[in-house]
Amino acid sequence: MTSRPVRIKIALACALTVLLAMTANGCTKKPPVARPTPPPPDTSIITDVPPPPPPPPVSPGGERQPGGETAADRLTPDVDLGSRSLDELNRDSPLQPVFFGFDSSEVSPSGQTTLTANADVLRRYPSWVVTIEGHCDERGTAEYNLALGERRALAARAYLVSLGIAGDRLRTVSYGKEFPFDPGHTEDAYGKNRRAHFVITAR
């Protein structure tokens, strides 16, 4: 039972090497598992997005283009991202987060636009492996939010797979409401925290 105070040894044997998913080596395996049918790409949006322009020549100064109107515009690389370290890539990521409605894991039209742009980047850098993190705002419970974050990550992944990105380049992990991006308690903060967040784990 529970009562052996004198004998309590805190079992640090579980003490363990911290293996970080984020740093997990990417060049692995894993066939995509069966998924629910991904949401069909919204063709009207797909056709509205121009095909990705070829990467412009690298300008040593690397001046960024002024921010465009759409995610796809913003993501247009003007430098060779392939030369950056993982840390640098994730600090200023070319992969934009996808935001969700309250208690929803449905990819919205604007989320589809974002994912289409992310797919372009992933096609341009075919060696990249990413982990899609599912996050939630603080208003739900910790327990349920872990499943909701999982659904968000899976939904973003399924959409990318439907755009032709290989499933074995796309891992998912849900953090529920454990790691809010904006610690505030406003609608604005909640909106930022309901997201699928992309972390590049191998390049």
Partner: peptide, 20 residues
Amino acid sequence: SYRRGFPDLYVSNIYQGTPP
């Protein structure tokens, strides 16, 4: 625990020195 980077269930025998 996310000790391996993803959530998994662990069982720790807390009064023994055995790994989870």
